[in-house]
């Protein structure tokens, strides 16, 4: 498994069609995409153009109907489901628009979860990341007692606690007011700058474009050149 490459994402001619009740709904029509290590890439485009589908394919949450996807040089399409799950756990962090925190766990519990899934010992990474995002004092609170901005920061902390090679963020500020969204984006940008974290973020927020290395626009299942 060769991972010694500068390309974190190398997707070529990716097609995807949803099939439901005998009806085919093509979503991606031959997407080509490369992202270099350390890049902060924004993916923009109208709703329904296939951004989230592409993100899920790049994050190994689903398989494309056709095309090849390499993550850090590894052809993830040839992997078994279990191998993809392990690969995702080791190298990819996800941030969702709806935060997707587990309500039964505290903020600390949510942040520790990826470490627990990897079988890592809890030697303070969670506390370190919680301090970094300024929420260490709320570590023992359940998500429902946190503001939505705080919840998204916890979700971000959970995504980066394992120091992934790739961060995939699906409209992380979509549910936030502009002030809170700004704070979360600042945090994302800081994380990118301080850690060199390769980031692909879906957003509708054009104001953030200035902070990104590249802005890609997607329309009708293709990335516009």
């Amino acid at each position: 498994m060769n991972t010694n490459t500068d390309l974190v994402i190398d997707a070529h001619d990716v097609h995807h069609t949803y099939r439901q009740d005998g009806t085919d709904s093509p979503v991606l029509h031959g997407v080509d995409l490369t992202i270099r290590r350390g890049e902060f890439v924004l993916l923009m485009g109208p709703s329904g153009c296939g951004k989230t589908t592409l993100l899920h394919i790049l994050g190994m949450m689903m398989r494309p109907t056709s095309g090849s996807v390499r993550v850090e040089g590894v052809d993830v399409g040839s992997m078994s489901e279990a191998e993809r799950t392990r690969f995702r756990r080791e190298r990819v962090g996800f941030v969702f628009q709806r935060f997707n925190l587990l309500p039964i766990l505290t903020a600390r519990g949510n942040v520790e979860l990826p470490l627990r899934l990897r079988g890592d010992t809890m030697d303070g990474q969670a506390a370190r990341v919680l301090r970094q995002i300024g929420l260490l004092e709320k570590a023992d609170k359940k998500p429902r007692s946190l503001s939505i901005g705080e919840q998204q920061r916890i979700a971000l902390a959970r995504a980066v606690v394992t120091e992934p090679h790739l961060l995939l963020a699906d409209e992380p500020t979509g549910n936030l007011d502009s002030a809170t969204a700004g704070a979360v984006l600042d945090l994302l940008a800081n994380l990118h700058q301080s850690c060199g974290l390769t980031t692909l973020m879906i957003t509708h927020n054009e104001h953030i474009a200035t902070r990104a290395d590249r802005v890609l626009t997607m329309r009708d299942g293709r990335i516009e050149l």
């Binding site: 994050g59 949450m61 279990a82 799950t85 392990r86 995702r88 756990r89 080791e90 990819v92 996800f94 969702f96 997707n100 925190l101 587990l102 039964i104 979860l113 990826p114 899934l117 990897r118 959970r158």
Partner: peptide, 13 residues
């Protein structure tokens, strides 16, 4: 949904 979250974080079957 929780299982979806866990799977996205890399939880195996």
């Amino acid at each position: 949904r929780e299982f979806g979250i866990l799977r996205s974080l890399g939880a195996t079957g």
